[in-house]
């Protein structure tokens, strides 16, 4: 508010002079517009900010000067072939488990919401069990699937088997990891999707039903797009969690990022820089996901607001324009206050 107040006062003469000499209450002869506003002081806030700045400087200084970080080793491995390939595996695992997990999760969510008590109970049981088993335990289970069932086959239930396959060849190590991650993810995704579906106004379904829109189409076209607004923030968390969660599959000796990093430092003994390599990649990937999430959320928010908020890019462009306008103004002698405020918007 302060700049506006002084700006508004500017055309009426020297603001500090009138402000300093005006006696009495703000509603005095000068009027409220001609008084200078002295902002409140916050010494404690300044002290705290200073402390944080000193700590940050210390930490940065340590990063740069402490030889243990071994930045040259970090640089050497960051884009090395092994590591980049491992990042690829991590991305593959994340992508597969996200897609499969959310597909299965959506089916489970609608099973839980269905009027059939059998379907609802089955979905509830699935969610109960898979949320109860730690991911690492489940992964090792899938890894040892061949011990549990040597052969997997298709046939008549409790009757003859028509086609069968050795379980080891059907589910390789990567397959076991994808299955484990997906099944685990599905249990969480189911609850997130269900939460989104329940949040959609009941009138929407009634309107769709009154228009005779087919049931599946109601879900796909009317309910899910609106549910997405509630689903996406939680789903974003899940995908980021999954990306980092893939590091758990190192127990199955799959060459994803964390496993490869361990292999390398097991051989070279350069633990800290290689952990930094993994950290850097996880941070970059998560950042990319976060940006993607922002735009996906924006897409599904269409129609929700009368005027959608600007994207960061639009905002940056706008402030750049404002800066340029301000620079141009400096050359001009006197500008009415109303115009100033208008251009700031």
């Amino acid at each position: 508010m302060r700049p506006t107040a002084t700006t508004a006062a500017a055309p009426s003469g020297d603001p500090s002079a009138t402000g300093a000499t005006a006696p009495g209450p703000p509603s005095g002869p000068g009027g409220p517009g001609s008084l200078t506003v002295v902002p409140a002081r916050h010494p404690a806030r300044w002290a705290a900010a200073l402390a944080v700045a000193v700590l940050a400087a210390q930490f940065t200084h340590g990063l740069a000067t402490n030889p243990v970080w071994e930045w040259d080793v970090f640089r050497g491995y960051l884009f090395s072939e092994t590591i980049v390939q491992a990042v690829g595996v991590t991305l593959q695992l994340t992508a597969c488990a996200t897609v499969l997990g959310f597909l299965l999760g959506t089916v489970l969510a609608f099973m839980r919401l269905s009027r059939s008590p059998v379907l609802a109970t089955a979905a509830w049981t699935y969610i109960w069990i898979f949320r109860s088993i730690p991911m690492i335990v489940q992964l090792v289970f899938w890894f040892n699937l061949s011990a549990l069932y040597e052969e997997l086959g298709l046939g008549i239930p409790f009757g003859p088997v028509l086609w069968s396959v050795d379980s080891d060849s059907l589910i390789g190590t990567i397959g076991a990891a994808v299955v484990g991650l997906s099944l685990h993810q599905a249990a969480y995704a189911a609850e997130i999707v269900r939460g989104g579906v329940v949040s959609v106004d009941h009138g929407q379904l009634e309107a769709a039903a009154a228009l005779g829109i087919p049931r599946l189409r109601q879900i796909r076209r009317i309910v899910l797009p609106q549910a997405m607004r509630a689903i996406l923030p939680a789903a974003g968390n899940e995908v980021v969690g999954l990306l980092k969660g893939t590091s758990v599959v190192y127990v199955m000796a799959i060459g994803e990022l964390f496993y490869q990093v361990q292999v390398v430092y097991g051989r070279t003994g350069r633990v800290i820089p290689l952990l930094l390599v993994a950290t850097a990649w996880y941070v970059v990937l998560t950042s990319v996901l976060s940006v993607a999430q922002y735009y996906v959320e924006r897409h599904f928010a269409r129609g929700a607001d009368r005027t959608p908020p600007p994207t960061p890019l639009q905002r940056a462009r706008r402030s750049l324009r404002a800066l340029r306008a301000a620079a141009a103004r400096r050359d001009r002698p006197v500008v009415p206050a109303a115009t100033l405020r208008g251009e700031n918007r």
Binding site: A207, R302, G303
Partner: peptide
């Protein structure tokens, strides 16, 4: 059928 609170699809 026309509803009291319209129930248009907002998206």
């Amino acid at each position: 059928f026309v509803f009291q609170d319209f129930n248009l699809f907002p998206h």
